[in-house]
Amino acid sequence: MEQYYLAALQKVPGIGSSRIKALVDYFGSARQAWLADQGDLFLSRCVDNTVCNNLLAHRDKLDVHNLAELLFKKRIFLCSLTNDNYPVLLRNTFNPPYVLYYRGILPNHDKLVAIVGARKASPYGRNAAGMLAAALATAQVGIVSGAARGIDTTAHQGALEQGYTIAVLGCGVDISYPPENARLLARIAETGAIISEYAPGVMAQARHFPARNRIISGLSRGVIVVEAAERSGALITADFALEEGRDVFAVPGSIFAGGSKGTNRLIKQGAKLVDGAGDVLEEYGWEADPLKPAGVILAKDEQAVYSLLNYEEPIGIEEIVTKLNVLPATAAYILLQLTLRGLTVEHSGQCYTCAAREGNK
């Protein structure tokens, strides 16, 4: 039960990792700290008057045994700093969460890289994120991201095609945020991990995300920023990485795109430019998967449609119909087949781009 008492302490406003450690060291266990009376808490000098009152108020409302039962029913696990399976890179950061809630399987290695970027991502950014994630996952690199819209979502999807991914949330691990990623998070929980320092039932709040970002960078050997405006949460993650001595990589973007201002500035400041997974693998001496994807063979009509597409600007089906002089139903069928084979990506308004993959850029 000791871990559940640790989790109970972490739920108290004003009690972070350093105070939990101080309380456990003073009282001998999290359970004794949780059950200590007001006088003993004051004598410990581990908490001030406000935090002490917060602890007492939470203790009156929270039954630790009920918390344990709730987590068991929801198949949510706990991992504390004292556990051997606590992620090693995160353990060695300045302010790691004392307790992590998680669903799925925690990583048992440090071959992890974060991919982060804009929520309002361009087709170019999504293509780059998906390509990098898939290629790195093929090389047995775990992909860490925040399950947000845009770049994060595409990074997780790319990693799931080939390997392992971790989603770090700014809410409880039983909450699907954003809501449209419920199915994605369920898939991640099956083969990867969903992690949070927030207890089940805690809803996402703006103030949670900077704290969430420190965990993303803390779990990772390096952070790849794919798209980021000049003021961006992805840049906060990059800042955390730099503070912890982790590597920062950036995907270059158009000098005319507002969503690339932040990434291009990172490159100016010394971030390593990335245009393929090999740039990251080379940095750490990791080996790429020796199996190269087989060449794609397209039928004549498929090649005609595919040749009109690019990796950055979506092309509408009407334009394809006009240029090739084919029926809309024919164009739609060909595009569906290309999409099912992972060669194209459909965007809103029946517009399409090529799907970037290492080796076919």
Rank of each mutant, 00 (worst) to 15 (best):
R31M: 03
A193E: 10
G172L: 12
R103K: 15
L71R: 09
A331P: 10
V141P: 12
Y311Q: 01
P293G: 09
I224K: 03
R59N: 03
V225E: 01
T339W: 05
T165R: 04
L160I: 07
N264H: 10
I20M: 15
F77M: 07
A356V: 01
K74E: 15
V47H: 01
A33S: 06
L112E: 03
A118T: 14
Q303L: 15
V24S: 04
T154C: 11
Y124C: 02
K292V: 14
N54V: 04
E312W: 05
E313V: 12
A8T: 13
G233A: 12
A238L: 05
Q162S: 12
R207K: 15
V113H: 03
C79Y: 08
L219D: 05
D289C: 15
R119N: 06
R75E: 13
E243W: 09
N264R: 11
R126A: 02
I115R: 00
L70K: 15
E312G: 04
P290F: 10
K300I: 06
R19F: 00
V173M: 07
G170S: 13
L35K: 09
S29H: 01
L35S: 03
N83F: 07
I20R: 09
A229S: 14
N264Y: 09
L62H: 04
Q157P: 00
R59S: 05
A257N: 12
T344L: 02
L67H: 05
L160V: 06
Q205H: 13
K323F: 03
S348M: 10
A114V: 03
L298M: 15
N83S: 14
V113T: 08
F42Y: 08
R357Q: 12
T330G: 02
N213W: 01
A189P: 08
G262Q: 04
P210E: 01
F209K: 13
F72A: 15
S220C: 03
E230N: 07
G285W: 03
N49Q: 12
R214A: 09
G316W: 11
P328L: 14
I255H: 12
E318V: 09
